[in-house]
Amino acid sequence: MSLSVIVPCYNERANIAPMVAALDAALKGLEWEVVFVDDDSPDGTAQQARALAAKDRRVRCIRRVGRRGLSSAVIEGALSSSADYVAVIDGDMQHDETRLPAMLQAVAGGADLAIGSRHVEGGDATGLASPMRVKLSDAGIRLAQLLAKAPVHDPMSGFFLLRRSLFEQLASRLTGQGFKILLDLMLASPRRLAIVEVPYKFRPRAAGESKLDALVLVQFAGLLIDKILRGTVPLRFISFALVGGFGVLVNVVILELARHGGLSFGKAQTLGTIVAMIANFQLNNQLTYRAQRLKGPRAWRGLVIFLLVCGLGAVANIGIARALYAENESGLLASAAGAAIGVVWNYAVSATLVWRVR
């Protein structure tokens, strides 16, 4: 049996050598390789991996430029493999690599998928450390269990193993968005998978810093929505529309505060609209287009273009709403149609001009 261990990483230079040493100790007697998929880390993660690869042919590195995201990194790494089995493990050394032989044995014995689980007997999640990380993880687990096609205690795990042939079958069905590739795999399968959960103890992070934040949970919620809609609406459009809904709330709050502060309705509405558009830009930059996030001067340029795009979208929104209202005098229908056209316009033009892939 041959095994490819896929390690998605970003700014994990300090963990590369310890990871290879740990895998060497845990997988003795097995034919294995490790594939580090690095999203162009500024700390030299890829260079460190390549330095080890020059001495050890079991080490490979894929450096991705202009692309970012754990799920897409896992997909790219797994599809680069020719091994019988692929395993996914985080690059932060918090997963217990010594459980890989047991996971491999479970899949070789007939299971479709072996999951390293913190929430079955013998497992431990104390390595999450901060209360916020615990709350984020618990909330994600509850959401995932509502949709999972099989009863799984730890659907948020990033530590799992399966046959490469099964991954190949499911690859075209994956969204490739966000951080939770395991749930994506389970929901992508047209049949119920036979799953074995192997307990492990989640370790405290020894080096680097956690990538888990509230935006990861929002991306995760977007993945669930995408699966509910069966991919009929692009995930990015869903995210963009949700951010737009938040912008409406910001607009209303600023409008009311400004009016209580003595501004006229017209000035208050203008202020609220500008603040809402800035908030929308920031959220879309951090969430919807996280993989193409704009920084520095490019972020300022993007903000200016976004404001212009949304300004034109607002004009279109108002014009269409007025025209429809003149036809049928249904204010609610006219307003909804105008808003829908405005969202589609803002999404299409922003993707082309603001966050276009270079």
Score class of each variant (00 low, 15 high):
Leu212Val: 08
Gly110Ser: 12
Leu229Pro: 07
Leu212Lys: 00
Ser210Lys: 01
Met156Tyr: 05
Leu187Gly: 05
Pro151Trp: 03
Val107Ile: 11
Leu161Phe: 04
Ile115Phe: 07
Ala125Lys: 10
Phe160Ser: 04
Leu223Arg: 01
Gly127Cys: 09
Ala129Glu: 14
Val107Ser: 02
Gly158Thr: 10
Ala144Val: 03
Asp138Thr: 14
Gly222Thr: 03
Ala207Thr: 13
Arg133Met: 10
Leu147Lys: 06
Ile225Val: 15
Arg163Thr: 05
Leu224Trp: 09
Gly123Leu: 12
Lys135His: 08
Leu104Thr: 05
Ala148Met: 07
Gly222Ala: 13
Arg133Asn: 15
Gly122Lys: 13
Ala214Gln: 02
Leu182Gln: 04
Ala171Lys: 00
Leu223Thr: 06
Leu128Ser: 02
Gly176Gln: 06
Ala106Met: 06
Ala111Ile: 02
Gly140Ile: 06
Ser210Ala: 10
Val107Phe: 03
Ala194Gln: 14
Val218Gln: 00
Glu209Leu: 03
Arg163Gly: 11
Val152Tyr: 05
Pro190Val: 08
Met132Trp: 07
Gln169Thr: 11
Leu229Ile: 15
Asp226Trp: 15
Asp184Met: 06
Leu182Arg: 03
Arg191Cys: 01
Ala171Ile: 02
Ala171Asn: 04
Pro101Glu: 07
Lys227Ile: 01
Ala114Phe: 01
Ala206Arg: 15
Lys227Arg: 15
Arg163Tyr: 01
Phe202Ser: 00
Ala188Tyr: 02
Leu193Cys: 07
Glu209Pro: 00
Ser165Thr: 14
Asp154Pro: 12
